[in-house]
Simulated scan of single mutants.
Amino acid sequence: MDSFPASAALRDLLASCLKFSGAPSVVDMDGTRRLAHGLGLTEGQAMRVLLARGIWPERFLRSRESVSEETLLRLLSSRVLIAGCGGLGGHLAALLARSGIGCLVLCDPDIFEESNLNRQRFCTEKTLGHPKVEACRDGLREMASYLEVQALPWEL
Score class of each variant (00 low, 15 high):
M1L: 14
D2A: 15
A6L: 14
A8Y: 09
R11V: 11
V27A: 11
R33W: 02
G38D: 06
L39T: 11
L39Q: 09
G40F: 05
G40Q: 08
T42K: 03
G44M: 03
G44I: 01
G44D: 07
Q45H: 11
L50T: 04
A52L: 11
A52V: 08
R53W: 11
G54N: 13
P57I: 11
P57S: 05
E58D: 14
R59S: 07
S63E: 11
S63N: 15
R64V: 07
L73Q: 09
S77R: 07
S78E: 09
R79W: 00
L81A: 15
I82V: 12
I82H: 02
G84A: 04
G86L: 10
G87Y: 02
L88R: 05
L92N: 01
L92I: 14
A93W: 01
R98K: 13
R98A: 15
R98P: 08
S99M: 12
S99L: 11
S99A: 15
C103R: 09
L104P: 00
V105W: 00
V105L: 10
V105A: 05
C107T: 09
P109Q: 11
I111Q: 11
I111D: 10
F112H: 09
E113V: 13
E114P: 04
S115W: 02
N116G: 13
N116I: 12
N118C: 03
R119N: 15
R119C: 13
R121N: 08
F122A: 09
C123F: 05
T124C: 08
E125N: 14
T127R: 06
P131N: 13
V133L: 05
E134K: 03
R137W: 00
D138A: 08
G139A: 07
L140W: 01
M143V: 10
A144R: 00
Q150W: 03
P153D: 08
